[in-house]
């Protein structure tokens, strides 16, 4: 086992542990903070898998912008007061059954495939190469994503208007 494999497994353990902690916290703020750690771990993984540009984007967009958006909304809602309903006890058995079945199928699918044991070679893609590739081969998808972002912006502005607050105050 060389140093890169060691880094990969350490990062994998970090990501998994942070994600498990994130999805089990009672308070949404704690969960968002653990999720930031998880996304920083994914950025390290992207760096290891050969793309420093995407690692930087992961830090800036995921761990920076999206998580701050979550924090803002959690603090606006003040939803941490109420006791959260538990997952109904009678659904645990079918849920576990489906989960085990899914895990078994995933395990078989990954390890019966001969390419599953192919070792990954260390490469690095510079941002220049990556940018040239994206804007030469996938310029249409870039346009579609930009249009999608514009639509998201419009939807957020339209739905975010405070129309319902007056009605709720009168009740």
């Amino acid at each position: 086992m060389n140093v890169y494999a060691l880094m990969f497994y350490a990062t994998a353990v970090l990501i998994t542990a942070a994600t498990v902690l994130a999805i089990t916290r009672r308070q949404a703020v704690h969960s968002v903070l653990f999720l930031v750690i998880s996304f920083l771990g994914s950025a390290m993984l992207f760096y290891l898998l050969g793309s420093p540009f995407l690692a930087a984007l992961q830090v800036i967009i995921y761990a920076g912008a999206i998580m701050v958006l979550f924090l803002f909304v959690v603090m606006m809602l003040r939803a941490d007061h109420g006791e959260e309903n538990k997952f109904p006890r009678r659904f645990w058995v079918p849920g576990l059954l489906v989960g085990l079945l899914f895990s078994g199928a995933l395990w078989v699918a990954v390890f019966s495939d001969p390419s599953g044991s192919v070792p990954l070679n260390l490469t690095m893609v510079t941002p220049k190469e990556f940018g040239r590739f994206v804007f030469e081969q996938y310029w249409l998808s870039v346009e579609i994503v930009s249009l999608l972002l514009l639509l998201g912006l419009l939807a957020a502005i339209h739905l975010g208007k405070e129309k319902g607050r007056v009605e709720r105050g009168q009740e």
Binding site: N2, Y4, A5, F8, Y9, A12, I15, T16, T19, L48, L49, S103, L106, V110, F111, D113, S115, G116, S117, V118, P119, L120, N121, L122
Partner: peptide, 16 residues
Amino acid sequence: MIVPYGHVLVLAGIIF
């Protein structure tokens, strides 16, 4: 080399 491809897939599956 880093790790076998299957290990990355397993990590992605666990996260998913």
